[in-house]
Design a protein around this nucleic acid. Structure first.
Lengths: 212, 212
DNA sequence: ACCTGAACACCGTTCAAGT
DNA sequence: ACCTGAACACCGTTCAAGT
């Protein structure tokens, strides 16, 4: 299973892959604010400075973590041949992948904003849209709008989850079936938002056709 | 101009308003990573601990800063009577208000996600949409989708601005007229995204009419 | 190729006490 | 009502040196 299992070697104990995996676990267990380099080092039984052999800084590590999260979306996105179901499927797969790890939307968001990684996310959305008869620039912008919405929505959703779990209910929201209801309405709100964008794209298509 | 100008008093030197104003200036001058409680205290000629009389913690301070930023959007958003131009105007005003302060989109984003403030932003978007013949739930979801897109887009835009200013050009983007071109295309991309969402809402309207 | 040890320059927050 | 002084428990990052 591990890359160093046969060698009885004492010092080379970890590869970058192990570090990213440990970071992902720590993120999911403790959340982004508690994912510190020092804590990560501790779980790997290593000095904090050792991490800087694998990555130049924390942001680079988080970029690798982001790539890992996004890669998950690849494995369970069924491919469709029409652009609209395809784009919808990619959006859903992305949301599911993000929801699989605590605080992941914020991590991916800032990584993408800094241009350090997770480019696969836009690419997959763009590839789905490109199945339609759009201009390349329209595909780019549509994918970008979709991604912004997805990250914003899931980020909001995840922050709300941990706020709820901490019992920080600011408004008199609801009582016992609230947790389930919150989850369901979050899904509905997400579907509505992607639907808005996709029907917007559809309209765009109709207009360019009537021009021709 | 100041609230303490006449009193020769020595100790009560600042109100919460001054602290927020100083934080906003510091944010715009140095950026979010350098907006620390200690630095803020220093610019106010005060010990760091003094800030905790005004605000319980840093997040609460940032929430007040967010409210201030959003309030700016109020002063220059012309009001329209039709829902679509009204919503477009609110979106533009919001973007302009965010672009007026460095890193503001990230600040507002996390404040909203944590549910600590800046609620006026969604409200204004919702009020514009409510001019149309939508169900209340549709208004809420539409406004939320718009807000997610706006914050995501401007956040990306601002991060890119500081990345460019630091000379961190990852890709061979362009040379001299690139800065202007980047700004122009950012604006076009923003317009396209809000247009997608608004025509999506329009479509929603047509469908509910054909059902009736 | 991968890690230690030790240090540098910081953080946010608390709290008794002052004016 | 607003602030000081001093402390607590941390951070990310660097770098010479080890194996």
């Amino acid at each position: 299973m591990s890359e160093t299992e046969t060698t009885g070697g004492k010092y080379p104990r970890h590869g970058s892959v192990d570090v990213v995996a440990a970071a992902l676990t720590l993120l999911d267990d403790l959340g982004l604010p508690d994912l510190t380099m020092r804590r990560l080092a501790a779980t790997l039984d290593v000095q904090p400075s050792a991490l800087y052999w694998h990555f130049p800084n924390k942001q680079a590590l988080l970029a690798a973590v982001s790539d890992q999260i996004i890669a998950r979306a690849r494995r369970d996105s069924p491919r469709a041949t029409e652009w609209m179901p395809a784009a919808r499927a990619e959006a859903d797969a992305l949301r599911d992948a993000l929801l699989a790890f605590r605080d992941s939307a914020e991590v991916v968001s800032s990584t993408i904003a800094l241009g350090l990684g997770a480019g696969e996310a836009v690419q997959r959305l763009a590839a789905a849209l490109a199945l339609g008869d759009f201009e390349p620039e329209t595909v780019r912008r549509g994918a970008s709008a979709l991604l912004h919405f997805i990250l914003g929505h899931v980020s909001h959703e995840q922050q709300r989850m941990q706020a709820d779990s901490l019992g920080v209910l600011s408004e008199p929201h609801a009582s016992s079936p609230a947790a389930a209801a919150t989850g369901a309405s979050a899904r509905a709100e997400f579907d509505f938002g992607t639907m808005l964008l996709l029907t917007g794209m559809e309209q765009q298509l109709r207009r360019s056709r009537s021009r021709a």
